[in-house]
């Protein structure tokens, strides 16, 4: 029996009368993670992982009814038993496990299996049906070892410092930016963060995640400037217009996106699973049915079907994220 169905507002669980990451306001919304496209305001009640509540309120405001659920702790909603489990995507990101009458469904949300000091480690789950993301659902997306990519970021920054110019690094402001800030070496030079990133940093620090110290004001020394991709060309960025530019994202695996943005460098760093990780996670769930949820789920669905699985495409109405 299907525990979930795709309604006009998103994934719906009839047994518990709640939605997961709905794209319109609903009665009760379970939120996998605090990226803006998942956090539609206007629902009567929200449920999210305890460590993600403060981040979610950045979008929903202080008045919204947000209920915190610690990872692993079951909650009965109507006829369904619901629990949240780390997804490794950003701080407080969760897979939603739903159980009813011995049937288990898991909705992954966005996830990453590689360790990240800025988020809780991904927890593999067993289920009969698995609803997976597929942001990078093509075999060209294969991440190099993360420490290698982070080393090249630092090497680029150091070389720029030596050449007397600043380095502007574009990254998803919630998740990837903090991932970088846990690793960047402040002894190379001052680090600045765009206000759109600093806005989230405080919630990370409040939960004891150690981020590199930020320099308060530009003092003319070559600096590393972290900024959201949407800031390319905005007024805050103007003072860095002579800088070398780069982006940290899974999209940097291919040359086209880097060239279209006229960036000097692209670093392959992602908060999402790459193709091998998607396949490994799907395998490890031992799910009989896989729902692939994305704007373009087709290749992964076809691959799974050709490899003997029952797989269904679920076209999601989420935005494409930059990570």
């Amino acid at each position: 029996m299907a525990l979930l169905e795709l309604g006009p507002h998103g994934l719906y669980c009839a047994a518990g009368d709640f939605y997961i990451d709905p794209w319109r306001p609903v009665g009760r919304a379970v939120i996998t993670h605090a990226h803006a496209d998942r956090a539609q305001a206007g629902s009567r009640g929200y449920l999210t992982a305890a460590s993600g509540v403060a981040l979610l309120r950045e979008w929903l405001g202080a008045e919204a009814a947000v209920e915190a659920l610690p990872y692993g702790q079951p909650l009965t909603i109507g006829g369904a038993r619901v629990s949240l489990h780390p997804a490794g995507h950003i701080l407080g990101s969760a897979q939603v496990r739903i159980e009813q009458g011995g049937e288990v469904w898991v909705v992954s949300g966005d996830y990453r299996t590689a360790p990240d000091p800025a988020s809780e480690p991904f927890e593999p789950l067993l289920c009969q049906a698995f609803v997976t993301e597929a942001s990078f659902g093509l075999p060209i997306f294969r991440w190099p070892p993360e420490d290698e990519a982070l080393d090249s970021v630092q090497a680029w920054w150091r070389a720029n410092c030596e050449a007397g110019r600043s380095s502007v690094l574009f990254a998803q402001p919630l998740g990837m930016a903090q991932r970088l800030l846990t690793t960047l070496d402040g002894s190379i030079g001052p680090i600045h963060a765009h206000p759109e990133i600093e806005r989230f940093n405080r919630h990370y620090r409040a939960q004891g995640i150690s981020l590199a110290g930020l320099a308060p004001e530009a003092d003319g020394r070559p600096a590393l400037v972290l900024a959201p991709p949407s800031a390319q060309g905005d007024s805050w960025m103007r003072r860095w217009d002579q800088a070398s530019t780069a982006m940290a994202s899974g999209w940097m695996r291919i040359r086209g996106p880097r060239r279209r943005r006229a960036l000097d460098r692209g670093f392959v760093l992602s908060s999402h699973a790459d193709w091998p990780a998607l396949l490994a996670v799907i395998d490890a769930t031992r799910a009989e049915t896989v729902w692939v949820m994305h704007r373009q789920p087709a290749p992964l669905v076809r691959w799974l079907v050709e490899h003997g699985r029952t797989a269904v495409a679920v076209e999601a109405q989420y935005g494409e994220d930059e990570a």
Binding site: L138, P139, I140, I254, R255, G256, A298, P299, R302, W303
Partner: peptide, 16 residues
């Protein structure tokens, strides 16, 4: 078919 999908995403044959 998957090669074709990949080529479509990459836009460059040698790179794909």
């Amino acid at each position: 078919w998957l090669f074709a999908d990949c080529y479509h995403a990459v836009g460059d044959f040698a790179e794909t």
